[in-house]
Design a protein around this nucleic acid. Structure first.
Lengths: 345, 345
DNA sequence: ATGAAAGCGCTAACAT
DNA sequence: ATGTTAGCGCTTTCAT
């Protein structure tokens, strides 16, 4: 940026009221060792000029910035959309800024970090799945002395501050709901094999059913082979799963988009939802409100989780307690239960 | 960030091969005035140490950064989700980083910019609706000597480099499609009154119909009174519009989410889509693939537009040509045309 | 409670 | 084609 006018500096502010730049710096940084009178005079001068301390200079001198990094995978996805929204909102509330990095599912995060991000001097990082479970990435961040918060980690639970939801519990409640509706043959559309959350959810779904008396042979499982867009993966999974002889009567999908794709194909071949087939998702993201019939799903407070995660990153006091669990809630709607069809869209 | 180990610097690299820091700097910055031999030696040394120039120091010394700012409004929305994806992808391709700021629709962008963003030293800004039409914001950015690219501006078309789609043309094609299907009474669900794109689309829809012989009294128009989530606004608009005596037979919604909400209510009161009512949207964002029946909509290449916009921001050569138009395409699907029902979901 | 000096890691401007 | 010097605007450290 070529600046046309020389920017106002700490020293300018100080000079204008006959004080040292350092005093102004102290006021800006809320140093307690400043007299009330001085503080007020400095604050007045700052307000009068609209002065804002230069971020680059601050980062350089203090070796700390107000940038929070966030990795995203290269997939249109409600989960990430909400995560970003919560993170941006919280960053803003605390005077930080959210820096987004989009990566392919295949590529090496550590390589990208080393080459393009290690020189930015982030204040910290928000690590959502699958990055929160990337041990190599965590190692590298640790090595560089960076702080980070993990969202919904599936491995090494105590490793760093984290925010997570009770995925397993929510899925267990869903399994019970389906069982009580009388379903006895089930299908699972899992998530990407790299996402450990997928393993957790699938595992919980199966274990819950076993406990209820379901046989392993009555649970079919497929992994979508297309993630872009996710909904197409759900459709593909349906094509494979519904082509078999004895088809399931109830399907659990790793997320809402997969469920939408699944439902689309099921309807195309003449199945009624939930009459012939019950379909459930996970997340209950706002975008999933478009799905018809309204989707039974496990609500996860994604926006709020992201906000909590950012708080832990930027407020010193919350550095103590390492793990925060957020509640999930089974939302029973029309896609599994006709009685819940009148649920507000 | 408290660094545990002192970071490698330009000077270190230079010292290790008996050269000045400035020479290393020249190589890093692709200065042509470096001999092949020197360049190779320096590059080898850089590769060996994994050195990356400190961004804060660079920003401070050169008064330029690699951060691109992007404003978002506080609404879950497919349009923004895709915009962010395209922008992040393009930033990454050119070695820049995307910094997101979320704002409320009501609050003053300029205030927020002045207080929290003017000190960051962004390389430039990506301005999507409604920010691209905020004259006060543009003035302020101009004043600070900042560069920016506008996406789909509706006012002051020549004011800055911009990327836009032929909204009016797409909507005109849609109007013709509906007219040819035999519709004669129409409804418009407009966008937020602050979004000028909404005025453009509504206007084009009406003008096209007038040209075809439609009377003003046969076009109803409502503005949703709820934007969070958007889909609920579409539902509310449907409640108001379908409650009237002579209801329209074809609806054009400002975007796909509104259309989804509209369809949801229409179906609740027993209308069949498109049998009783044709509904069309705008954007054709990936998220809208969840809508059933498949939505007739005007496809806008949002991801690509964001990518082009970022390119114009970060590549010097493209600074010349100010305006780039991207094509739109009317996608006729099941929500207006039963014959198009087999469109891939 | 306040100030002075040094320097963070880099680039601009001017040497050579 | 390469080196030298002087900052960028802030914080740190050490005085007072």
């Amino acid at each position: 940026m070529k600046k046309t006018t020389r920017p106002v500096t700490l020293a300018d502010i100080g000079a204008s009221i006959g004080m040292s730049a350092k005093t102004v710096s102290r006021v800006v940084n809320r140093d307690p060792n400043v007299s009330q009178a001085t503080r007020r005079r400095v604050e007045a001068a700052i307000a009068a000029t609209g002065f804002r301390p230069n971020l680059a200079a601050r980062s350089l001198a203090a070796d700390r910035s107000f940038l929070v990094g966030c990795f995203l995978v290269n997939t249109a996805n409600f989960y990430y959309a909400e995560l970003v929204r919560g993170a941006a909102r919280a960053c803003r509330r605390y005077g930080y800024h959210l820096v987004l990095e989009e990566l392919d599912l295949q590529e090496s995060v550590t390589d990208y970090y080393r080459e393009h991000m290690s020189n930015i001097g982030h204040h910290g990082f928000l690590l959502a799945p699958p990055f929160c479970d990337d041990a190599a990435l965590l190692d590298m961040l640790d090595e560089d002395g960076h702080r980070y918060v993990r969202v919904s980690p599936a491995t090494q639970p105590g490793r760093a501050p984290s925010v997570y939801a009770d995925d397993a519990g929510g899925v267990a409640a869903l399994a019970e709901h389906l069982w009580q509706l009388g379903h006895r043959r089930f299908g699972i559309v899992s998530g990407p094999s790299g996402h450990l959350a997928s393993a957790v959810r699938s595992h919980s779904f199966m274990e819950s059913l076993y406990r209820l008396g379901c046989l392993p042979s009555d649970i079919l499982s497929v992994e979508p082979d297309c993630w872009n867009p996710v909904v197409t993966g759900g459709r593909g999974a349906a094509i494979r799963m519904l082509g078999t002889g004895e088809r399931p009567t109830a399907i659990f999908c790793y997320n809402d988009e997969l469920a939408a794709g699944f439902i689309g194909y099921a309807r195309d071949i003449g199945l009624s939802i939930p009459g012939d087939l019950a379909v459930a998702g996970f997340d209950d993201s706002e975008g999933a409100r478009l799905i018809w019939p309204p989707l039974t799903t496990v609500h996860q407070p994604i926006v709020e989780m992201a906000e909590r995660a950012i708080e832990r990153l930027v407020t010193p006091q919350s550095a103590g307690d390492p793990s925060l669990m957020c509640g999930v809630e089974l939302k029973i709607r029309g896609s599994t239960d006709p009685g819940a069809m009148s649920d507000p869209a």
